[in-house]
Amino acid sequence: MALGDSLTEGVGDPVGDGWRGWAALLADGLAEGAVEFTNLAVSGSQTRDVLERQLPAGLALRPDVVSVVIGVNDTLRCTFDIRAVAARLDAVYAAFTEQGAVLLTACLPDPGAMLGLPGALSRPLARRQRAVNAVVHALSERHGAVHLHASEGAWLTDRAMWSADRLHPGERGHRQLAVRFHAVLAERGLARGTAPSPEPEFPAPTKSASLWWLATAGTGWMARRCTDLLPQLLTLAADEMRHRARGTSARLDLRASAAVSAALAGLSVEPDAA
């Protein structure tokens, strides 16, 4: 079973009239026989959505293996609160592991860098994503999750791995995630089926198709995000530039680290685990 947002829903890996994605590719390689796979991920979801909407449906089906990959959309909202993110993830992870499910988690790349935003705009998003990743690392260790460091590796800078929007993997990228997850699971004896192929099954979208996506669905997606995030992001950017001008940028990093430590301490997780 898979929970999460557009990444896990499969956006960027179209098959027929829908999306496939890394989780579906991975499911096929978990066992030698048939595997029943349910994808509860919904594009645009935040940690609140996973906790309140996806978790109840997931627990009712009692999965043997469950992936919970979420957090980027939280960083893109003006309501971002690392304490709330930590508390929600802790509750979701605990609920599945208490049922005996194998839990899969991943840290994710910085959305500002993936979108190619200017430094003053990208640095606040990078700081937020690092905070989310630190929380995911600590909670993954606490709950014994199988964790994938998806925020690292050469695949991040390989344009062939990414779709037209530069934020979601293309088919090659989704396959890369599935291959890497399968390898980690196989090392632990938890994946006994054939590993997913890293090679794409379908031709990459043409340049015209990519431009059409950006001009239609991509434009709408960006407009929705900008309406919510842009005012605060501009405020964060102004704060960033003031600190850089004064030579005090380190204070912003220290502030973010302190927030992560406080969030983890509130859950009785040692901050050093991050």
Rank of each mutant, 00 (worst) to 15 (best):
G4S: 07
S6G: 12
L7V: 07
T8S: 15
E9N: 04
D13W: 03
P14L: 03
G16P: 01
G18Q: 06
W19R: 06
W19Y: 11
G21M: 05
W22V: 02
A24Q: 12
L25C: 01
L26W: 06
L26E: 09
L26K: 05
D28T: 13
G29D: 05
G29E: 05
G29R: 03
L30C: 08
A31S: 14
V35I: 07
F37W: 09
A41W: 04
V42W: 01
S43F: 02
Q46E: 12
V50F: 02
L51R: 15
R53E: 11
Q54S: 08
P56H: 10
L61F: 00
L61R: 15
L61G: 03
R62Y: 00
R62C: 04
D64H: 09
V65E: 03
S67Q: 05
S67L: 07
V68C: 14
V69M: 08
V72F: 02
N73Y: 02
T75W: 01
R77Q: 12
D81R: 10
A84Y: 09
A84T: 13
A86H: 11
A87V: 09
A87T: 11
A91M: 03
V92K: 02
V92L: 04
G100Y: 12
A101I: 11
T105K: 06
A106E: 09
C107Q: 13
P109A: 11
D110V: 04
G119T: 13
A120P: 12
L125Q: 08
L125W: 05
L125Y: 06
Q129Y: 01
A131W: 01
V132T: 10
V135L: 07
A138R: 05
L139R: 02
L139C: 01
R142V: 07
H143Q: 04
V146P: 00
H147Q: 13
H147L: 12
A150S: 12
E152A: 12
E152Q: 12
A154M: 01
L156Y: 05
L156G: 10
T157H: 13
A160D: 15
M161D: 09
W162D: 13
S163T: 08
S163H: 15
R166S: 15
R166K: 14
R166H: 15
L167W: 07
L167I: 15
P169Q: 08
G170L: 08
R175F: 10
L177Y: 14
A178C: 08
A178L: 09
R180N: 14
R180C: 05
F181D: 06
F181E: 06
A183E: 13
V184N: 00
A186R: 14
A186I: 02
A186K: 09
A186M: 02
E187A: 10
R188D: 00
S197R: 06
F202T: 13
S208M: 11
S208E: 13
A209Y: 02
S210I: 00
S210Q: 15
L211R: 15
W213T: 09
L214Y: 01
M222S: 14
M222Q: 15
A223N: 02
A223E: 10
R224S: 12
T227M: 10
L229A: 11
L229K: 08
L230V: 09
Q232P: 00
Q232W: 13
T235L: 11
A237K: 04
M241K: 10
R244W: 09
R244Y: 03
R246G: 02
G247P: 08
A250R: 14
R251M: 09
L252G: 03
L254P: 00
A256D: 13
A256Q: 15
S257M: 09
A259Q: 14
L264S: 03
G266N: 07
L267P: 04
E270K: 05
A273T: 12
